[in-house]
């Protein structure tokens, strides 16, 4: 079993993929670059020759995909938060791809806590920005003492708890799924992992992407009330 532990530790370590000027750039950042490049090229190819009339199958599929993704986030945010929908949609797309990229042999970027922490920090900034933008600074400060002043400390604590829970939920789920998949692959390398991969890599990955975006959107909506 010593072998298994060692192999796991090796897999779980986020190595610095390359070093530029003494700064170690982790694998997750590099994989994110790859995702960005691939999606950028794909969208450039797909959005070429878009037609107003008689769109082809490719265009219809693209339009359907984009509108349904935007529909998800717009549905969560409601009409007041429409200007934040584009960011949430882009995060949803990124997390979906990042969680699924394990299928192609990359290490999912979301397995690195730097990535989930970065996402959570951006989420809490956006949540509070939406609140301030909507209510004004004064009412935003007052909203900490709602519904009663007694729970103000808890509300302040939530500023930390919300992003921490977002960060850890995503990180833990992806890490857990990754560890389980590694264990299964270590024990039964053929056949069985495919079945479990369906759940842990594809289903769980997409669910976690949705949960992250859903919670961020929900918190934003709450902050804007």
């Amino acid at each position: 079993m010593g072998n298994l532990g060692e192999a796991l530790r090796e897999e779980l370590n986020c190595e610095s993929a390359l070093t530029i000027g003494g700064i170690g750039i982790s694998e997750s950042v590099v994989v994110t670059w790859i995702i960005m490049a691939v999606v950028l090229v794909l969208s450039l190819i797909l959005t070429r020759n878009l037609k107003v009339e008689h769109p082809g199958k490719r265009q219809l599929l693209l339009e359907q995909a984009v509108t349904s993704l935007e529909g998800i986030t717009e549905g969560i945010l409601g009409p007041e938060g429409k200007q934040y929908a584009a960011y949430l949609t882009s995060v949803l797309l990124y997390l979906g791809i990042a969680n699924l990229i394990g299928i192609f042999g990359f290490k999912p970027p979301t397995k690195d806590m730097n990535v989930t922490a970065a996402l959570a920090i951006m989420s809490i900034i956006l949540i509070e920005y939406a609140g301030i933008h909507r209510k004004g600074v004064k009412r935003w400060f007052k909203s900490f003492a709602e519904p009663i002043a007694l729970i103000a400390p808890i509300n302040v604590l939530e500023l930390v708890i919300k992003p921490l829970s977002l960060c850890m939920r995503l990180f833990g789920n992806v890490l857990g799924a990754f560890v389980i998949m590694e264990l299964i692959e270590y024990i039964v390398p053929v056949g069985v992992p495919v079945v479990f991969s369906m759940y842990f890599d594809i289903f769980d990955g997409l669910i976690q992407a949705y949960v992250f975006v859903f919670l961020t959107g929900l918190f934003m909506k709450e902050a804007m009330e």
Binding site: L12, T32, W33, Y94, N114, A118, I121, M122
Partner: peptide
């Protein structure tokens, strides 16, 4: 895996550019 470093900043920049 459980460490936060300069890559967090890189990821934030990456996410903004991605957006």
């Amino acid at each position: 895996m459980l460490r936060l470093d300069i890559n967090l900043l890189f990821t934030i920049i990456n996410l903004l550019i991605w957006y």
